[in-house]
Structures are given as structure tokens and as C-alpha cells.
């Protein structure tokens, strides 16, 4: 067990090194097999139409937010005081901003889209047994699919945040404070974890169902049910707190709008008599800690489940 873990860590670190420093990776005599598989998967993703469409959608979201902010600039600067401690965050969170909302809807779609046919399509095409005839571990297949999707998504979201960041500097002349910067990093991290959560759901179903149509329908219905539950009034939706959509929404709201008034989950007796004020980041993380932990742990658990089912699966037959 320890040996397996060590190999994993070694392979993953090799893969990351190869990704960040490709020249060095090429120069090495033997590329690590996991990295070869991951890069093949990334190639697949980059070439697939559905990824390109989602990528375009995300770029349009960012551009739309930027344009909306530019158009309503005067109104925004009237609503939002410049001595607001979280002025830069307001670019993302002010009342007409579509960025957070669109991201919140796109993340599950992105995760499902990248994972719903990961295993079963390989099996239908008969490529799964071919890959396994190579001297690679069986779990590399699942891991490479997960890592490839996650890497691409992380890169894209990072790029997106960088563009928003740079635009804030160029157009408003406003950069984030350290606190805001850390909050944005947390937002990026949570969003990637959230995509990973849905990616794991999709991987799980793609391992269970033989038909990719069945897995995509299951994924979409799961997303629909969770969305409906999360859209209910807070009193009801909060009782389904294992709902990943609800958990993500709450965590993001707590991190990005750190006024007390924004925190629906703070009980009345704590909030009573307290004026809306800014909480420090570590306090926000403590408040959102349950949700963050749940998203990470749920993601890991789902991956473990799909791993478990995949390892016990019969893969020779079509």
C-alpha cells in the first residue's frame, strides 16, 4: 500500500514537472507513463468540440462581465464606495454581475461534459483493452482522465481570473488588496474543486453505465435535482446541505461577500445587533469550512468509489 502511494506521488510529481517544464520532460529518456497518458487525454480534450464550445462560453462570460461592468461603470461607482475595503471583489459580486452566477452554472456542465463518457466510450470503441495491453497500471486510465480534465479546467480558470485581474488594473486602475487576492485564490481553488466534484460524479457514472447516453442522462438529472433543491428558499435548501451546488454557493458567498449581512447561515442570535461588517478571511474560511471540507471530501470519496468500481470491472468484452 505504501509502495503504491509512493509510486503515485512520484508519478504525479513527474507529470506536473513534465507539464510545467516540457523541454525537460522531452529531454528525459523515458517519459513517465502516467504523463504520457495524461497528455494524450489533454490532446483529446483540446480537440473535442464540446470542450471548445464550453471554452468559448467561458471566455464570453468573462468578456460579458467586463462589458457589463464598463457600461454600468458610473452606476457601480455610485453604488459601491471607493473606500470599500473589498472594492476589487465587487467587480465580481456587485448586484448585476453575471460572472459568479454563470460560473456556478457552467462548472457542473463542464465537469459532466469532460467526464460522462470517459470510461464507457473507450470500452464501446474497444480502446480500453488495447490501452491495458500496454505495461501500465489499470488505475492510470482513470487517474489520467481525471488529471487531464482537471489540469485543463484549472488552466482555463486561472487564465480567466488573470484576464479579469488585468482588466481591473487597466480599466479601473484598481488592483486587489492582499486580502482580496487571497479570497480570489480561494475562489479559484473552490471552483476547481467544484468542477472536480462534478467530474468525479461523471466519471463514476461513466464507469457504472455501459452506454454513455445513460451516464449523461443520469449526470444531468443529478445536476437538475441538485439545482432545484439549491434554488429553494434558504430554510428548505439548507436542510439538504450535502447538495454540492448549495455547498458551493454558500462557500462562495461567504468568501466573496464577507459582510455579515450576506451570511444567511449565521444564526440570528449571533447576528443580532451586529452591524454588517467585514470579517477577516480566516474567519470566513472557518464559517465556510464545512462546505469547503465537504466539497473536497465529497470529490475524493466519489473518486474512490469510481476507482473501486473500475478496478473490479470486466473490461475485455465490448
Amino acid at each position: 500500500m505504501k509502495q503504491i502511494l509512493l509510486t503515485y506521488v512520484h508519478n504525479i510529481s513527474n507529470a506536473v514537472t513534465a507539464f510545467l517544464l516540457p523541454e525537460r520532460a522531452y529531454n528525459e529518456k523515458a517519459e513517465p507513463p502516467l504523463w504520457v497518458m495524461v497528455s494524450k487525454e489533454i490532446t483529446d480534450i483540446v480537440h473535442s468540440w464540446r470542450f471548445l464550445i464550453l471554452f468559448a462560453l467561458i471566455i464570453m462570460t468573462a468578456v460579458g462581465s467586463v462589458i457589463a461592468f464598463e457600461l454600468q461603470y458610473s452606476e457601480i461607482t455610485r453604488d459601491i464606495k471607493i473606500d470599500d475595503k473589498i472594492f476589487f471583489l465587487r467587480i465580481f459580486t456587485w448586484k448585476n454581475s453575471i460572472f459568479l452566477m454563470v460560473m456556478q452554472y457552467l462548472c457542473p456542465v463542464l465537469g459532466i461534459c469532460l467526464g460522462f463518457d470517459a470510461i464507457n466510450s473507450e470500452q464501446t470503441k474497444g480502446t480500453l483493452s488495447r490501452v491495458l495491453s500496454q505495461p501500465v497500471y489499470r488505475d492510470y486510465i482513470l487517474l489520467s482522465k481525471f488529471l487531464a480534465a482537471l489540469l485543463v479546467v484549472s488552466l482555463l480558470f486561472t487564465v480567466l481570473m488573470m484576464i479579469m485581474f488585468a482588466w481591473g488594473l487597466l480599466s479601473l486602475g484598481v488592483g486587489p488588496t492582499l486580502d482580496e487576492f487571497l479570497r480570489l485564490l480561494w475562489y479559484l481553488f473552490l471552483t476547481i474543486v467544484y468542477v472536480a466534484f462534478w467530474l468525479n460524479i461523471a466519471l463514476f457514472f461513466s464507469g457504472i453505465f455501459r452506454q454513455s447516453s445513460a451516464s449523461v442522462l443520469t449526470c444531468i438529472s443529478a445536476w437538475l435535482i441538485f439545482s432545484v433543491l439549491a434554488a429553494l428558499p434558504f430554510e428548505i435548501s439548507s436542510s439538504f446541505s450535502l447538495n454540492p451546488i448549495f455547498a458551493y454557493q454558500q462557500a462562495i458567498m461567504i468568501l466573496m461577500t464577507p459582510e455579515l449581512e450576506g451570511l444567511l447561515k449565521v444564526p440570528i442570535e449571533y447576528a443580532g445587533g451586529v452591524r454588517p461588517t467585514l470579517l477577516p478571511l480566516n474567519q470566513n474560511i472557518i464559517i465556510a469550512g464545512g462546505f469547503i471540507t465537504y466539497l473536497i471530501a465529497g470529490s475524493v470519496a466519489l473518486f474512490a468509489m469510481s476507482y473501486y468500481f473500475f478496478m473490479r470491472r470486466e473490461i475485455r468484452s465490448r
Binding site: A166, L169, L170
Partner: peptide, 13 residues
């Protein structure tokens, strides 16, 4: 330096 930083970040992205 704001403009420079912004351009550098966009170029990096």
C-alpha cells in the same frame, strides 16, 4: 506599473 502589470498578466494568460 499598473499598465505594465496588466499587460504582462494578459500576455501570460
Amino acid at each position: 506599473y499598473y499598465i505594465l502589470l496588466g499587460i504582462v498578466i494578459i500576455a501570460a494568460a
